[in-house]
Amino acid sequence: MGVLTDYFRAPHAEAVVQSLEETDGGSPLLAEPPRFEGADAKGVDNVVLGKLIAAIRRTEWRVDLVDGTTVWPTCPAPGPDGTETEDDPWATGPWVWELPSLVRDTLARVPDSTVPAVIARWTDAEELQGASVESIQPLAEKLIVLARRAQDADEQLYCWLSL
């Protein structure tokens, strides 16, 4: 089972929630017409995105590097004593996070001239074993352009993820 992941930009979480309510939680990128500008990034979850951010910042990856704020599902998460049911949206997804501005701004500030070197560092990540710079560069460039447009529009980046 693969992880389906889309990254997109939106003006605010309320617009994202409204879109998800209208599409029964489906990716805003698959709506007709697409609700927001974004990039299909199958398999690039928050860990893999965090490895890209670490490569750009030339720092070690940390679990909290791309921690965001959950915007979907909108129902409260079960507590430690809560019992998940088989149709519990927290167990079944999809899930959407608003990524921190640090992620958007880090991606947006990557100079075009350094993109190949950044991607070369990124492909060293264990999760990307076997990926070449040439195969992953289009996605990295889409994420960088998306972040620049989000920053220019004073919007945030969001991650939609489904199993």
Rank of each mutant, 00 (worst) to 15 (best):
R62S: 02
P73H: 03
R148V: 02
V103Y: 09
C159H: 13
T106G: 12
Q18T: 09
A15T: 00
A54V: 02
S19T: 10
G93Q: 13
T123K: 04
W95G: 05
I119Q: 08
D88P: 01
T70D: 02
L161H: 10
V16F: 12
P89E: 08
P89N: 10
L29R: 00
E86G: 05
I144D: 06
A39T: 03
R148A: 07
L139Q: 11
A13R: 09
P33N: 06
R148P: 03
K42C: 06
S132I: 05
L29E: 07
L29K: 08
T5M: 14
G25D: 03
P34E: 05
I53F: 11
T23I: 05
V66E: 02
P89Q: 09
P100G: 11
Q156A: 14
L157D: 10
W61H: 14
M1K: 07
E86Y: 08
E84S: 03
L161N: 13
G130Y: 12
Q156G: 07
W122C: 05
V66P: 00
A13E: 12
P80Q: 14
W122E: 04
D81L: 14
R109H: 12
R148M: 01
V96T: 07
D67I: 00
Y7L: 07
D67R: 14
A120I: 00
P80F: 12
K51A: 04
P89A: 10
E60R: 15
S132H: 01
P28H: 03
T92H: 06
E155Y: 01
S27P: 03
R58Y: 05
A125D: 13
W160Y: 12
L29I: 12
L143C: 11
P28R: 03
L157T: 11
K42F: 06
S101I: 04
L102H: 15
E86H: 08
V66F: 00
